[in-house]
Design a binder for these strands. Structure first.
Lengths: 331, 331
DNA sequence: TTGAAAGCGCTAACAT
DNA sequence: ATGTTAGCGCTTTCAA
């Protein structure tokens, strides 16, 4: 049909015909079928984004970044929420492949995602890893400096005088959790502090994980209890504070708490939360740009890895309050 | 091909052949083309969800609810973020129609979305409105009781002794903003309090909107300043508190603040926020169920509207603190 | 139990 | 400047 030419502005259409066609389109409410187009061309101008938890503001910001870049370049975004489950993730990837997305952006649920992603790589669809790097997976990667960020947080506490510092961490199958633990340990070592197994609690990356982990720490004999807690992500930080509040401990007077990832809505009104904030939106925009370059660019290039530096935000104006008090120690 | 029969389990395939086919599928990493299938059948088992702000936890919960129901029923969700822009919304709807989604779930950006949605209705794609009802749009609708919720919040403040109560509201083009204002006015009238134009500030449904609105209220001559503020959504509540903090006013001692929508992460650690919480997840699951019923069900039925009741959560244990102090009044 | 034909809506390539 | 042909991958229908 000539209609196709009109829609795709392929020039060489008489002005009169064009007008008639456009009128007909408007009258009939005609919308071209992207499926047929995709079938023909083998590309759909659609990219998939799979995050491990849509309800986490960190990933939400990533979604916004991705969407922005995609929209600006005429791509549609399909969103999947793996909910930290490798199985759900696998299902989504399959569905999206079946829908012939041009490429994928994935925040992998865990290291166990590797086999799925290797399969993906074998099928030749371009994809970019976000927030969580997987060794041996040959793909562009956009992550934060988890080791450095955790080190910074821990150093901050040490410099304020803390010595018994706990780590409330996510599942060690998640790369960021491993890295943050490493950073924490590095800082301790740097200051000659012996790490204590009882002060490192592993849990889920969820609020109730942090809540339970903190309770476990509070159940320690008084002399072994920490005076400060590093929470490995925003949810864990909030869960930790909840447990402290329930135990009638004040932050930061009775227990200092710092965490990875900012919690915008919370920290705007709760000024006691020193954090290491990641430029979440940039994770999304950069990853999306990488993907689009691969989709539009012609020659294949070796995979790139970008490590975005986090930023320490010290929220308590009275840093002194963080110094462990003797009676707090004794509790 | 016989392959089709194997994939769709259409029986009548020799066991031996089936095995061979399945092996080939595994070896080749074959993934059936959903585009071709969709083209043929006219349905894609895909539904679209358009929210007005992905970074709002309220909508995030809705996303989760929708995704759950969809996934359980073998549907894929495509997400769009209209960012409170009618134009973006229109573009998304067009794209999704072009991609032949089976149906749509839409939290309309504003009343101005009506024309777009009327067009949608004319094309005959089923859709469900979420959170924001539009008069004259003939579709299933799942909303909260904005009038009642705002009334409850305002009554709460009045019963605590407040008389000069301000409303920090969203744009009046958004149905929820209009309804919340109505509820606020109803409560005032009920107690014989004259509404003051200067105490009703309209803004965006964003944090900086709340921030500026609160600043405007604080700039009033002392005698006209409110002693309490009703914020029309979570973001406005946070922005309001930010402005108060900056002005060195304590919540709730110097100024009581209540808001529509809970802020889970924040209220878990900031105990001063009395809110009216909506069952956001249920908005999503119910809306998705409505849509799927229309997609799978045969006979057309008249559109339904569900109004979910919000729940008052009083967070300040010492309600007395909310009573306006004389010196606070004078400030 | 398996195969062949036809068509879903679109557009690249080739007429006219 | 416009029309025709063919084929993208699938499944429904009919035939073998």
């Amino acid at each position: 049909m000539t209609v196709s030419r009109v829609i795709n502005k392929h020039a060489r259409v008489a002005e009169a015909t064009r007008q008639r066609v456009e009128q007909a389109i408007a009258e009939l409410g005609y919308v071209p079928n992207a499926l047929a187009r995709g079938l023909l061309h083998g590309r759909t101008r659609t990219i998939a984004l799979i995050v491990s938890d849509v309800s986490n503001p960190f990933f939400t910001q990533i979604v916004r970044g991705v969407e922005d870049v995609a929209q600006r370049n005429g791509y549609t975004v399909i969103l999947g929420n793996s909910d930290e489950s490798v199985e759900k993730e696998r299902r989504y990837i399959h569905t999206f492949l079946s829908n012939r997305v041009d490429g994928l952006l994935i925040a992998p649920a865990s290291s166990a995602s590797r086999s799925t992603l290797e399969l993906l790589a074998r099928r030749g669809r371009p994809f970019v890893l976000i927030d969580r790097a997987l060794e041996g997976v040959n793909a562009d990667t956009v992550i934060g400096d988890s080791v450095g960020g955790a080190r910074t947080l821990t150093q901050h506490l040490i410099r304020l005088g803390h010595r018994r510092i706990a780590l409330v961490n996510g599942p060690l199958e998640v790369p960021t959790a491993r890295d943050r633990q490493r950073g924490y340990l590095e800082a301790l070592r740097e200051y000659g502090i012996d790490p204590q197994a009882s002060l490192i609690v592993t849990s889920t990356y969820k609020r109730d994980g942090g809540y339970r982990a903190a309770q476990q720490l509070l159940a320690l004999p008084p002399a072994q209890r920490p005076t400060a807690i590093v929470a490995s992500n925003n949810f864990l930080g909030v869960g930790t504070i909840e447990a402290l509040r329930e135990a009638a401990l004040a932050v930061p007077q009775d227990m200092a708490v710092v965490c990875f990832d900012d919690i915008e809505l919370a920290s705007a009104i709760y000024p006691f939360l020193t954090v290491v904030a990641q430029p979440a939106r940039a994770f999304g925009t950069i990853a999306a740009q990488f993907l689009l370059e691969r989709l539009e660019g012609s020659e294949p290039s070796p995979p790139r890895t970008v490590v975005l530096p986090p930023e320490l935000i010290v929220r308590v104006s009275c840093g002194a309050a963080l110094k462990p008090r003797v009676d707090a120690d004794r509790r």
